[in-house]
Simulated scan of single mutants.
Amino acid sequence: MAVRRLLLDHLNRDPNRARDEDLEPNEVGIVGDANHRGGYHCGSDRVVTNDYSVVESPRDRNGLTLDAAALDVGMFRLNSGGRTHNLFTFSTWCVAQCVAGAPDTRDIREIIYSPDGKVVRRWDRLGRRGTGDRSHLWHTHFSFFRDAIKAGRDQRPLFRRYLTTIGLLDAEGNVSDYVQYGDEGPGVYRLQYRLNRLGYDKIVGPADGVYKDRTAAGVKAFELSVNKDSKEDGRRVTAATWTRLDDAYWRQLIAQHAPKPSTVPAPTIDYGQLARTLDLHGLAGAIPLPQLAAMLAADQTLTLHLVNELLKRLVAVAPAP
């Protein structure tokens, strides 16, 4: 289930609608339907006598539970890292990793696949079989040793490594932002969203996750806004471009949420009147009123001190309620 979620998160690029290019939820299967008679898509309640998914390996015999131990992956197609990737290139990459003995393939028993949509082949770790039925022209089957499923071992590392290899994830497993013309997927969505938030929506148009001419024009326009002598053609977004995009985005966000200057005019203080009021209540001392008014205007600390004293005297003489 974790592998299924990982693949759908990154290969079903538009989850709001069905597209031939996307890997749709109904194209990633685990538990066999009613037509399945035994095999890795079935658990202990549905295996058959001498089921090959049980009897051919002690890992399967000792690991048999009610859980299915297989994954089917259907057709998809996307551009990433300047290349086209699909079910056939995905399958041959996975088989190559198994042949090479990569550590994250040790729990895979077999892969039934097509390298070209014309012939069906099978990589079998036990060397028992070399082909499969024609349905594998349009879907690839992965069998996992049952003891790995029983142990709850994470099977995502191989598939995460594939997504990193084709440029959809970075080395830390995060969605890759370093995209270029022709790429598709989450990294392009993020780029388009950022450009549109910065005001380039009339150029880029609605975010569709596809890096084509309009997105390139938006990147070029942004680069020119930062540097009028920029020679960038907008056909790639590297770390430097993302740094500039982020700087511009955060400057805009801060400006939008920064406190606005008050539009209410500051009150005008009549320092002459204030001096006369202070004198009336015995707070002017021997200072001539014009000179006191000038002192109050020049020294706000003095003004606050005398006003506080004035308020104390006013409160002291106020009649009790």
Rank of each mutant, 00 (worst) to 15 (best):
L6A: 02
L7E: 02
D14E: 14
D14A: 14
R17H: 13
A18V: 00
E21M: 04
L23H: 05
E24G: 15
E27D: 12
E27T: 01
V31W: 03
G32M: 05
D33P: 01
A34S: 10
R37T: 05
G38V: 08
G39D: 04
C42F: 00
D45K: 12
T49E: 06
N50C: 07
S53E: 02
V55E: 01
S57V: 05
R59S: 09
D60A: 12
D60W: 11
N62R: 15
L64Y: 07
L64N: 04
L64W: 05
T65W: 11
L66P: 05
N79F: 01
N79R: 04
G82N: 10
T89G: 14
F90C: 04
T92S: 10
W93L: 10
A96N: 14
A96W: 10
A96P: 03
Q97H: 14
Q97D: 06
Q97V: 08
V99P: 00
A100G: 11
P103T: 06
I108A: 05
I108T: 01
R109G: 05
R109Y: 00
E110R: 12
Y113P: 05
S114Q: 02
S114M: 01
V120K: 08
L126W: 08
R128Q: 12
R129Y: 15
G130H: 11
T131R: 14
S135K: 15
H139P: 00
H139I: 00
F142I: 06
F144I: 08
A148S: 15
G152A: 05
R156F: 13
T164H: 05
D177W: 06
G187M: 10
G187L: 07
L191H: 12
R194M: 14
N196M: 11
N196W: 08
K202R: 13
I203M: 00
V204C: 10
G205P: 01
P206F: 11
A207Q: 11
G209Y: 03
V210F: 12
R214I: 01
T215V: 08
A216Y: 00
E223I: 00
S230M: 09
S230G: 09
V237W: 01
A240Q: 11
L245P: 02
D246M: 05
W250G: 04
A255D: 15
A255E: 15
P259W: 10
K260F: 07
P267I: 09
I269T: 12
I269E: 04
D270S: 12
D279H: 10
A284H: 12
G285C: 10
G285D: 06
P288F: 04
P290C: 13
Q291P: 03
A294P: 03
M295A: 13
D299F: 02
D299G: 02
Q300H: 10
H305L: 09
L311C: 10
A316T: 06
A318S: 14
A320V: 06
A320L: 07
P321A: 14
